[in-house]
């Protein structure tokens, strides 16, 4: 990908994503942390667009910002007496070491391997193709995923149901 727009966009988005992600870890206030996480998600969505994955980019915004970030916010507001701080526990140094190690290894592998780079251009349109694949080749995993979602919903409701909740509608 050599055209100027993409390159410029990539560097801006990369800086945004990584910067926001680093701040998420560094910032002390949990709500700020979630807001920065949203920025990071948006940055990743932008990166998807530079990778010509328009459908995934939109889904990223829809699910991660519109749903998961909101769930995190809900988790925060529903636990009012818990701390709002986002500080590290006693695992700080081991975790840091491990994270650096893992990321370093992956970066090393990324540069060390000679990938079979294809010469094709970006995808023209992915939504239709993904739809076809999902309902054809990956139909079974697709159904399983929907069952998973359903059971997750039921599980979540069962978990937060207060003990002795009245049966049926009020």
């Amino acid at each position: 990908m050599e055209d100027t727009g993409t390159v410029v966009a990539f560097w801006i988005l990369a800086a945004l994503t990584v910067g926001a992600a680093l701040s998420v870890a560094a910032v002390r206030n949990l709500i700020h942390s979630v807001v920065l996480l949203i920025v990071s998600f948006a940055g990743v969505a932008g990166l998807y667009i530079t990778l010509s994955a328009d459908f995934i980019a939109v889904v990223q915004i829809l699910i991660y910002i519109g749903a998961i970030a909101i769930l995190l916010i809900f988790a925060i507001v529903l636990t009012p007496r818990a701390g709002r701080l986002n500080q590290e526990g006693f695992m700080l140094l081991p975790a840091l070491a491990l994270a650096v190690l893992v990321a370093g290894t992956m970066i090393f592998v990324a540069f060390d391997t000679s990938w079979a780079i294809s010469e094709r251009d970006g995808f023209e349109e992915t939504a239709t193709a993904i739809g076809d694949l999902l309902l054809d080749k990956y139909a079974l995993p697709f159904e399983i995923a929907s069952v998973l979602l359903l059971s997750a919903i039921i599980g979540a409701i069962l978990l937060v149901r207060p003990e002795g909740a009245e049966e049926g509608p009020e």
């Binding site: 529903l78 009012p80 007496r81 409701i157 149901r161 207060p162 909740a165």
Partner: peptide, 8 residues
């Protein structure tokens, strides 16, 4: 559905 919360 009731999620208990603090008096407010």
């Amino acid at each position: 559905m009731t999620i208990k919360s603090e008096p407010f």
